[in-house]
Nucleic acid binder design. Structure first.
Lengths: 224, 224
DNA sequence: TGCGCTCAACTTGTATACAAGTTGGATTGT
DNA sequence: ACAATCCAACTTGTATACAAGTTGAGCGCA
């Protein structure tokens, strides 16, 4: 697509890598990210690392405090609910504001993702399941025609996606895999009939259910 | 409210100043912002300036290109329409997702702003009118209870607000002042009756009208 | 033992020198 | 006269030294 300069490409690489580590809980909430160590790991100086961390701070995934460090944020329940309440509505909007018709190729990709989801029944691996759902989400994003809405949806997703992974070990594995499979299956069905509003409704409903499960768990359990 | 560190305060100051300059067309689209000159002006080194410019780049107000410079972006009509289509819907959402009841103090402030708007009939000063509308917008933001929605609304506003100011000289001054006054008046009326959905509807409709005027002008005229 | 101080070892924030990249004008050859 | 080339003067991107700030371990002392 766009021709990225060397610097921009390097930024994207490091940014996505660290963002994924946060989203997949390789850096759990509260983890301290040392600019020096990251710089050494990626073979650059602190400067480009700081640029990445500042972007992650703008997006609310980390906070930098002088003298202390750059800490991965914790998602408090109240904010989580607000984000989900908003994402619910935005998912519906995605079906109204000039949605993009899916290509055959995209549907094929989604079906291959569905197969991988179904293979997760036998293999307990929360991180892999989360990674798969990230891929599903990434595949769905381009169907949003409204550019600012697409960018916002992506940001909000990454802000809260890790919460599900956080409580996944305490949920019923088979049931969670099943719910995910069902969402992907229903979405594929709607896309094959080119029914974008239905697709939006399905995703919105699944978000609501997910918020329900999460909120029920975080609100009633021994969570802090 | 929050206790800001010295560095964070300095960042906010410089950030808001440069953002305002872009929004008020003191830096028209295409302007080159030199990090060195800005650093000299604000009495700091390039480092904190770069941090501000990177944030503005994330928000789409400028683009930095190595060897060329940091340029203020131009808002193309297509993207403008997409942003407005989204802001329309978001304005409605602001009335649904846990809106905040206005305090007496806030209504008083809005009425003082209305007076200043009414004083603009006799004084042709597009920049001052835009500054006033910015204040109005800033006063309305806290009524959005949903935090992520509030942040998004603010960002989208600053992304496109300057377009109106850009074409203001070619519009009918008295009419534009009148429309602005009417919006503020109607909003105050709705707020006094604590009718948040009505407030949301009013703002949404005014956005639609503004997009209509803008789009009619930019689409049909000799504007580039 | 326990309290309080100090300071060394970390952190992020800033200033600055240098590398990489672009542009436009002077200069030189035809 | 004109065209190609080179290079100086800018730009942003990176590396690095230093300033500012925080923390906790260790040491002295009551």
């Amino acid at each position: 697509m766009d021709q990225l300069t060397k610097a921009a490409f390097q930024f994207q690489t490091i940014y996505q890598e660290i963002r994924d580590r946060i989203g997949l809980l390789q850096y759990p909430p509260g983890t301290m990210l040392s600019e020096n160590k990251l710089a050494t790991e990626f073979g650059v100086s602190r400067t480009p690392i700081r640029r990445v961390l500042q972007r992650l701070e703008f997006e609310g995934l980390v906070v930098s405090k002088q003298g202390i460090g750059t800490l991965v944020t914790t998602v408090d329940l109240q904010y989580l609910k607000e984000v989900y309440a908003l994402r619910l509505k935005l998912a519906q909007l995605a079906g109204e504001l000039s949605p993009i018709r899916p290509t055959e190729q995209r549907i094929a990709t989604l079906e291959s993702i569905l197969e991988k989801f179904e293979a997760m029944y036998d293999q307990y691996d929360p991180t892999e399941l989360a990674r798969l759902y990230n891929r599903f989400q990434a595949e769905m994003l381009p169907l949003i025609g409204n550019r600012p809405l697409r960018e916002i949806s992506e940001r909000l997703y990454h802000q809260t996606a890790r919460v599900w992974l956080q409580i996944l070990p305490d949920l019923d594995w088979a049931e969670e895999v099943n719910i995910a499979c069902q969402e992907v299956r229903e979405v594929i069905g709607a896309l094959k009939e080119k029914d974008m509003p239905a697709m939006a409704r399905i995703r919105s409903e699944h978000m609501a259910m997910l918020l329900g499960r999460t909120s029920r768990y975080l609100g009633g359990g021994s969570a802090r």
